[in-house]
């Protein structure tokens, strides 16, 4: 059981236990849908929805589930919320849903979600799990936004589809290709580690 204060429970997801930069979870969507800010943001919000509701359900029914079938039960719960998110995007945000392709259904296997159920929601109260889910989602959205902003500006010269670089700017096509995702993530992880080392030394 976690004994942190509510504020610290939320804030840990933003930096100390940031799912992308610190835990290296959810790498597949992080790399795949951060070519543009809008798809990165949509992925972040869809994941937030799934994480919050899965955590609430899992933490509420944790005592009823035998340990042997807990993972299977979590997956069924997660898959249900992912399907709801997918249907919702298809119905109300069709172009975004098309742009994200298969990556919305793939939220089912996003390790951040299953990881939080196993590491947190299955051991803590519903209220605390909600705060944890909000913190982790915020951290995930933050990471996706940083990554997609860098990639969209360098790769296409735009931000949220608006041209922000002058005519002199030649887009770096590699940044919107998969290789650009790996390069950007690698540099960001290096920076995160450097900051961590520096703060630890002080």
């Amino acid at each position: 059981m976690s004994t942190k204060s509510i504020g610290a429970e939320y804030l840990k997801g933003l930096w100390d236990e940031n799912p992308v930069f610190r835990q290296l979870l959810g790498m597949c969507p992080t790399l795949a849908v951060t070519g543009t800010v809008i798809t990165g943001l949509a992925m972040g919000l869809a994941t937030t929805f799934v994480l919050i509701f899965s955590s609430l359900v899992v933490s509420s029914i944790k005592k009823l589930i035998p340990a042997q079938v807990r993972i299977a039960s979590y997956i069924v719960v997660i898959a249900s919320f992912v399907t709801i998110a997918d249907q919702f995007l298809k119905a109300y945000f069709y172009p975004i849903s098309k742009a994200m392709g298969p990556y919305v259904p793939l939220i089912v296997v996003n390790c951040i979600i299953l990881g939080r159920q196993e590491a947190f929601a299955s051991k803590n109260s519903a209220g605390r799990s909600l705060i944890d889910a909000l913190g982790m989602s915020s951290g995930f959205i933050l990471a996706l936004l940083v990554l997609s902003t860098i990639r969209e500006i360098l790769g296409a010269g735009t931000f949220l589809g608006y041209q922000i670089m002058g005519a002199w700017f030649k887009p770096w096509t590699i940044m919107i290709l998969p290789a650009g995702a790996f390069l950007t993530l690698g540099v960001l992880l290096g920076i995160a580690l450097a900051i961590e080392r520096k703060t630890m030394r002080n």
């Binding site: 009823l64 589930i65 035998p66 079938v69 249900s80 399907t83 119905a91």
Partner: peptide, 25 residues
């Protein structure tokens, strides 16, 4: 019993959501 119940509730819930969004999709 637990797995069946979880599956049934999820299934029923999803059928409802599919029904709601089918037309719009």
């Amino acid at each position: 019993i637990v797995l069946t119940t979880v599956g049934l509730i999820s299934g029923g819930f999803l059928a409802g959501v599919a029904q709601l969004t089918k037309e719009r999709i």
